[in-house]
Nucleic acid binder design. Structure first.
Lengths: 202, 202, 202, 202
DNA sequence: CGCTAACCGAGACGGTACGTCCCGTCTTTAC
DNA sequence: GTAAAGACGGGACGTACCGTCTCGGTTAGCG
């Protein structure tokens, strides 16, 4: 009933229905936001009956939470190789791009609003943010250890500043943060040490 | 009808009703969020009749927008004197305190959500943020001009990073940004020049 | 406060207001009926403020009852002379005419409806009907005593039948009872004795 | 939508809801009258949601009219056999009993009031009265033809007088017409011919 | 003839019912 | 047995009046 991902649907129609409805739910959330999110809209969008939705998810929140939980993972890029600074630039650029325009990003206001009302959504939202930030933090720590950044830098604070800047653009201004300025942003928060030439020279 | 603040009500009851209802609306918004915001709930909270609300505001959005517009201004602290760095620390601490806990701050998720649906709310939200950020930006510029910060710093980007960090804590993590760490944050984004008269050395 | 007619208003505005409002109330009652009767309509009709009405009458029912009580008396005709049968025919014709078309008559459905809810209105309605019927009953009794009608006739039952016929037309059919048929009706209920000096034979 | 009786509801809940709500509407009408009739009160009485009512009837008047139209027929007694006079006595007694006390009868003032405002209600009210009166009229005509009553009698006028007397008691006096006096009333309006012994003797 | 008190209209107030819309649940029918 | 259709109880919406109340402005009639 909780619609968790572990339910190995015997009937292939079931899994198909679930996938279609989950996608419709995210679309609806992106378009209408949390407040105006309505099961009837999702049903219409997925060309399904309301009862089909309620058969698989307990209620609105259950559907939203499950849709988020199932849709996650698209944000984590492959860090590939390179210096820490390069990987960070890549990661930040990726986050900025996704934040600037994607269905998922358009759901963030809804996620924030929903997190106020439902603990499961809150846990997902905060946990997901924490995981993303942890990735960045460890990259920064690696950079400090590699001598790319000043040793006095608070890696977690820097990660918050970088991600905060990106989300600030999305949530508090008319224009999201420009992904092209990702490098600029990283340099501002994590100035490359003059003596450590970014691992490029030599 | 738009409930603007300029309406010089002849009947003293009018201004009183408006004030009480505006406060109730903000309380409701802080507690229930944008989606669950209900005029009937505001009326009950303000111990007013629904008709009294509709007499002064066209609809839900008109009330919310007017309540925000009227409630503004509480965020601007007195810059007082001191070096730019000191003023910035004070300002950031103030923003962090308000963000950590105030009725207004608890309305921010609602404001973000509402801005998606209503242009008036969007204009208020973005305009207000811009004004706040402009204040910080000009302080940073002054600091650069005074030789307190490195001349290469992008003042606006730095302001976004600082405010973004504070709001990131509020919106994306379980715990808001700790106001006690305001100085730390400012120093991380705007490292004091060692040679500058930052008010500390000598 | 009860708006009784005895209040010798010192200020001539008072009596004038009362008269205008009472008339407006009857007009409104005739036009809109009891259910749709509204103080605001009466006020608009009388070009008065609502408060002026509530200053003189406690509420809707008080106004209606007082308007009826003040307006009464128009129904009682002067029987003049003639035989009982002639007087009865005249009276019935008069009642039929008034019932067919007059402001007062158009208020009767409202009066019946109102009588269900308010004892004062009920007392007025029943009392007024009783007074009218009593007049007819005594005429019939006189006719019996004079030998114009059969001695076995139940005068009160006959009066009820005559008035009932007239009101039945008003309340239960599309067309009110035709006043021209008043004589016919009286003759049907009170057949003139052939031997009696009914004023017709010989 | 008009709630007519012909709607062959596929879902059995539909007919059940309609019946319960119609009964609640009549009860409310009998108790509160036309003016104070409220859909919300009917919903509470029927333990139904307001939306269920509006799903089946356009508005207040549609519900009232349909409730009346559906509830009709309870007034028609079994004519059985016997002489015309006997049948008339039975019919009048029946009408008097129903008029004296029944939910339907308690709705008559509301019906009269409502007929002033709504043509559908007016048509029902006048049509229903006409049908009832027609039954009585034809019985009287049959009685005249059978020699039970004087040939000069105007059957329709007599029917109006009889029914008018009964309703006069209900609408214009504190006490409804006593059913025990039905025979007395019929004899007063339709005196049995001395030469036609009512079909009793022999 | 000017003062004062009453009466006036206008309309804000807390309420209640309206008729509409949509929620999330539950029932029925069709495939 | 699953899905689509949609009836159900519920509740907020924004509107229209209710009857009460608080306003200044006008007007009558006494000093």
């Amino acid at each position: 009933m909780s619609g968790g991902p572990g339910t190995a649907g015997l009937d292939p129609r079931v899994e198909r229905s679930r996938a279609v409805i989950r996608q419709a739910a995210l679309d609806e959330l992106a378009e209408s936001g949390y407040g105006a999110f309505s099961i009837e809209s999702v049903a219409a969008r997925a060309r399904a009956g309301k009862s089909t939705i309620y058969r698989h998810w307990r209620d609105k929140l259950d559907l939203i939470a499950d849709a988020f939980e199932t849709a996650h993972g698209e944000l984590v890029p492959h860090p590939a190789g390179g210096t820490a600074a390069e990987q960070i630039r890549l990661l930040v650029r990726h986050v900025a791009e996704i934040t600037a325009d994607s269905t998922f990003s358009r759901c963030i206001p809804a996620l924030i609003e929903g997190a106020r009302h439902d603990s499961r959504l809150r846990d997902f939202h905060h946990g997901y943010s924490a995981r993303r930030r942890a990735g960045l933090t460890s990259l920064i720590s690696a950079g400090i250890a590699a001598g790319e950044f000043a040793p006095g830098i608070d890696a977690d604070l820097a990660a918050q500043a970088i991600l905060g800047t990106v989300f600030y653009g999305r949530l508090m201004t008319p224009e999201p943060f420009d992904p092209a300025r990702a490098g600029e942003l990283v340099d501002a928060i994590l100035p490359p040490l003059p003596s450590a030439p970014g691992g490029r020279e030599e």
